[in-house]
Design a protein around this nucleic acid. Sequence first.
DNA 1: ACATGTGAACTGCTTCACAGCG
DNA 2: CGCTGTGAAGCAGTTCACATGT
Lengths: 212, 212
Amino acid sequence: MKRIAESTVRRLSLYLRFLEEFEARGQVTVSSEELAQQGGTTSAQVRKDLSFFGSFGKRGLGYSVPELASQLREILGLGRKWRVVVVGAGKIGAALVQYRGFRQRGFDVVAVYDNDPRVIGHKWNGLVVRDVRGFGTDEVQRPDIAVVAVPAEQAQAVADLVVRHGVKAILNFASAPLTVPDDVAVKTVNMAMELETLSYSLVNRDVESDDD
Amino acid sequence: MKRIAESTVRRLSLYLRFLEEFEARGQVTVSSEELAQQGGTTSAQVRKDLSFFGSFGKRGLGYSVPELASQLREILGLGRKWRVVVVGAGKIGAALVQYRGFRQRGFDVVAVYDNDPRVIGHKWNGLVVRDVRGFGTDEVQRPDIAVVAVPAEQAQAVADLVVRHGVKAILNFASAPLTVPDDVAVKTVNMAMELETLSYSLVNRDVESDDD
DNA sequence: ACATGTGAACTGCTTCACAGCG
DNA sequence: CGCTGTGAAGCAGTTCACATGT
């Protein structure tokens, strides 16, 4: 299978959400045009995105909502549960663990770590906060995904730690970009960057804003 | 001035952070190569990004750290304070308001809104939670940026409300994309999408992961 | 000699337009 | 006839490579 653009994968994720809405409303069929309108893209884009993975539609008719949803779940790897650990028991970590869509979509938070002795050992959202220095040697099974929610200065050290113990995917909330081996996937969510992009667009009103 | 790619603006934001680190360490000059290494990009990219806005470097020498930092702040519109309101006094809102880099970079949270009568009126991170129905008619000055941190079903209604009252920039944490007029900038941070991108890369190891 | 600034080449994503099929 | 699936065209962002300035 050929390389798929990240932008394509992100749109697939969006399409899936729309399909679930259509499904909840009892709609059994959608056209690429309907999906496109929801997602702020074009029907050609929708069809092209899907075509990388197969032919899921019926010509003259559209796509079966439940069938396409199921295909997308398969493609996105949502057919299974993923073990997630959160490193950093601060506000961001707390918000994440409480986030509804998290567990809902098969991402199970199985452990929380911190390095602050005042927090370690306390119950936190139903989980005991563990000492990060025990990562990988405690009884917690190796997680699939590590969420890094620590200050920027500590982010790289945490990344190194989890990578050393075999974690292959990191969701990074520190504003510092992380350096990891090629076979580890990193997604960085950088709040400051988002805000500054908005700030830029405010002082450059002539430039059109992009609604993504 | 011509249209600048969003990716370029995001990188400028990154460069600024690195420059501030260099500044703190007392380094007075940087080359495009040094900036590139920090940011995981190439020196040509750095120079191209900057060239859209002017010629800030000295040939054979590089860039003055404080001077370039100051230029970038200017370009990004960080030379002033921005009034930010948070709509949705939940966990995500809480995490955001506490986020250090927020106020640090000139983004002042001046009000918090919610629609839950059990929360309205309570002190929350030093601010009283206001009734969202009073938005625009209360004594709070019109904000520059609205952070939408409400459930997906309510996100569009909130967006409509703040846009109606003249807000021109929205940071959206709901997983639903927002529809807004052309002159309003929206940045959507979609946690589910990030997680699903990671999930995808875990089930498609052959595809190389991108460290952004 | 060294590092910037930039036109030109390249790469890859998006859009177009239409053939194909229900 | 309607809507999908897709090769081809178009476009935008990145990389190259070198002329330019110190």
